[in-house]
Design a protein around this nucleic acid. Structure first.
Lengths: 142, 142
DNA sequence: AAGTAATGAATAATTATTATCAATTAAAAA
DNA sequence: TTTTTAATTGATAATAATTATTCATTACTT
């Protein structure tokens, strides 16, 4: 999670221009824990940037991904979700309401075993859990 | 992994007709360990079924998925891959050559911890590892 | 063997994402 | 500051994977 200043420097240092749109897209993503997709971000930004185009959201994400300051989530839906939290963690999605939550389970042992078994040199690991969230569980037995 | 007979019964029992195309699509998927996408399957089936349409591959997959006899993989590429091996296992993709391999690391402990931490009732867990495969590693230091 | 419902092939539609491009704007140079 | 330059934006077109539709054909049931 970067501050506006940090993001500005990072962009500039990598030859990208610092624009209000980029700062806003990043800030909007960094602020939420809902792991939005492009559409959700676009709608959130609409009020402040009525003129912003969809492509700007996608292009910003592409740059952020290249700079390694966001993660692109692939929960199996028809669109990607994005996360500005780069700490090592996993994601869990509710099969009833669709929400995506963070969770942190140490995966080093898991990854290490995978490396031993496959002979791959593993650089990344993405785990997705699926199930019914506490809220939806509560609704079930009401 | 089902035999032709088992698949035929399963289809019939669930109100789906048994057709040569469906059997061929399933058999083709069950035979390989490459985790093909729709296009790869289509090309493999071309010689035997020159008249088969792309939609038939997709529709077969949809049925197989509903019958829970295949898994749909989403490695982050622009198309889905499919797997007829329903045993509990994970997948690993080479970031150099793109191949997808199976691997089996016991994930029960991992999932259990996730359940405790989140309060979700977890029904499924998908892990994708990414790294460089042994073959590509060998090429690197040649 | 006939009737009926499902299927397959062809094709059109949908939808997320990417590419294009003229107008604009940020950054570098003067 | 002003000028120059080069990247970015927004609008829109293009792309591509997947899904829906249509209708002639085929596979089960009676």
């Amino acid at each position: 999670m970067l501050t506006g200043k940090e993001l500005s420097s990072l962009l500039r240092d990598n030859g990208y221009k610092v624009t209000p749109q980029r700062l806003a897209v990043y800030e909007s993503l960094a602020k939420t824990k809902t792991h939005p997709n492009a559409e959700m971000l676009f709608k959130t930004l609409q009020p402040k940037f009525p003129a912003m185009s969809f492509a700007t959201v996608y292009k910003s994400m592409e740059i952020f991904d290249r700079l390694n300051i966001i993660t692109i989530l692939n929960t199996g839906e028809d669109s990607y979700r994005y996360d500005a939290d780069m700490s090592d963690h996993q994601h869990i999605q509710c099969t009833k309401c669709g929400r995506v939550d963070d969770l942190m389970v140490d995966s080093r042992d898991f990854t290490h075993k995978a490396e031993l078994e496959t002979g791959y040199r593993i650089s990344e690991q993405k785990s997705y859990f699926y199930g019914v969230c506490p809220k939806c569980l509560a609704k079930e037995h009401n």
